[in-house]
Design a protein around this nucleic acid. Structure first.
Lengths: 342, 342
DNA sequence: CTGTTAGCGCTTTCAG
DNA sequence: CTGAAAGCGCTAACAG
């Protein structure tokens, strides 16, 4: 009847041992039964599951992580949360990972490679079971951390170079920009400016795609490149349009590297009484929310970020379970959405 | 010289014991020194820190959580990530919490109370050191989970009722809506419609604020209320404006419950050739990105979500450290931003 | 102010 | 297919 004299650190939690006692088997059997690991007598599995449910047993992730050296966390590194693109990506990732029992740890790098490395270092302390990172532009330290970590890693939004294989899900940023440029050329535009902000890798890949097409058409000129390292914003898009038309009146189309900029340009065009697309075509990239609502509706590149998120999570899941993946390099393509702006 | 025969599960990790050995003290002393807990001889603290740095020691969060029954996770529950409001809030929370050594676990409830409860249940398994939740509209189960969890909890975006004290940082949604309504009345508007979507609690509080002012002015009419449970979007805002003007041509102002809707209305007004603000004033709520770029620029309520996030995180930090908080109910106010749309 | 001891709750390892 | 034992790395509790 007496309380055990020196029970030191009771936490009150219902443990595997409690379940085991209730089910009349050993703790390890319950552990295996609940995780579906190895072969366990179906009868015992049922008893264990039943007891667990009855007692309201919840496994302790910390204990599990300590004993098994791996957690149920998945670390996801993205550049920004204020860009709807990454919100869509993340939403899809979580919808796939959560039902599978994984928690998503979000790290926002703010397009800073050092910040990314620091974040990864912190997240790696938690022994994540898997990693999802944006693109391939990382510091040497980051690459080494990924390498040395035993967690599988999937790269999203870009595709790896064929000679440097890696798990990745995305599409060719360069080809997408090329295709959009071709669309403008086919529509008869000749002096097509490329306007970009932020200037992260993917933006530069788009720049490259535009350059290729312009060169192929014999229409490239450095004076058509408008590169601003500041973060993208509606206001900047408007300012860039004004500047471009002011300094290069002959420009008959502006290809903005993303929809934020393009939307801002469209808004500014109204203010400035610039006719789009008559005076100048304006096109964007990503097909973000609102692009179809603009006046005129924005012609843009639709990028499958939700599909990328879902596929990347599925691929990671396979890797974490030690299953093979169908395609290590998954190209989900893109689509030119022609509306009225260009 | 022989390897110990039964060393079972070496993980290769550098542990506290390694640091202790290098520093010539006991593990617990290193533990205390590194955490700054209790009083430790400054000399030993220095030795411990030095050894830790030299060996590149990283504490294992899982072991720490298991032993101490609390993690360095902070769970944050928000309704959506596709609403810039919550992205701003979250950004500020992380900027405060991360330097203090806490990881943020984000849960997106999608405005669903059951989903919220389920998310909280999952997050609580990780024994978070603290909780940040949006508002006060929760299921009974959620309230009980919060209650029974030993983790401190801060509510954001709304203020608690004075008779039911709780840690909270926000502003009065109702008063903000009242103030905006008053602004429209002062500007001579009489038939002011209130258009809302999503219909979550905060939206309904805004509805209430509008109603109070309209009643006080003797101008309220149920026909001025346009409530749509669908999620907010630019497209919906446009559709609502069209519907309102179509069915109630006498309406001379529309107060949208948020900027998404209002921006969509502004865009639609251009399409429909409806003069804003001459024919009808359009105002919004939150002052999201782009509202100042619209044509005409949107009059709206600026809400201090970044400040709310930072203050909530600071309050939580104090609670987690067992320090007292200056003000349990922190009202950060709001500001009517008058632009050209109304 | 420092150390010893005993776990936190789970899973790995090794036997049966 | 099941179990016993050992210990993952750390900190709470209780002395010294």
């Amino acid at each position: 009847m007496a309380t055990p004299p020196a029970r030191r650190r009771a936490s009150g939690r219902i443990t595997l041992a409690d379940v085991a006692r209730a089910a009349g088997v050993s703790p390890i059997t319950v552990s295996r039964a609940l995780r579906g690991e190895r072969a366990v007598d179906p009868e015992l599995v049922a008893r264990a599951q039943d007891a667990a449910r009855r007692l309201g047993y919840l496994p302790d992730p910390a204990a599990r992580a300590l004993a098994s050296q791996r957690s149920t966390h998945v670390a996801v590194l993205i550049p920004m949360l204020s860009n709807a693109l990454f919100v869509d990506l993340l939403g899809a990732v979580q919808r796939t990972l959560r039902p599978a029992g994984y928690q998503t740890l979000i790290g926002v790098t703010n397009y800073d490679r050092q910040e990314e490395e620091q974040l990864l270092r912190e997240q790696l302390m938690h022994r994540p079971a898997g990693l999802i990172v944006t693109g391939f532009d990382h510091s040497a330290g980051t690459r080494e951390l990924i390498e040395r970590s035993s967690a599988p890693c999937v790269h999203v939004m870009e595709l790896c170079e064929p000679d440097r294989p890696a798990d990745c899900v995305g599409f060719s940023q360069g080809e997408a920009a090329s295709a959009m440029t071709r669309h403008l050329l086919d529509a008869g535009r000749r002096r097509i400016a490329f306007a970009a902000a932020q200037l992260d890798t993917r933006t530069l890949q788009r720049l490259d795609g535009w350059r290729k097409q312009m060169n192929a058409a014999g229409l490239h000129s450095p004076t058509l490149e408008w590169l601003n390292p500041a973060p993208s914003s509606l206001a900047l898009g408007g300012a860039m349009l004004e500047q471009i038309l002011g300094q290069r009146p002959a420009v008959d189309a502006v290809f903005f590297c993303n929809d934020d900029l393009a939307q801002g340009a469209l808004l500014a065009a109204q203010r400035l009484r610039v006719q789009v697309p008559q005076r100048v075509a304006v096109v964007g990239f990503n097909d973000l929310t609102g692009s179809d609502q603009m006046q005129p509706p924005l012609t843009t590149v639709r990028t499958p970020r939700a599909e990328i998120g879902a596929a990347a999570a599925a691929m990671l899941l396979a890797r974490m379970r030690g299953e093979p993946v169908a395609q290590q390099r998954l190209d989900l393509g893109f689509e030119i959405v022609v509306r009225s702006s260009g």
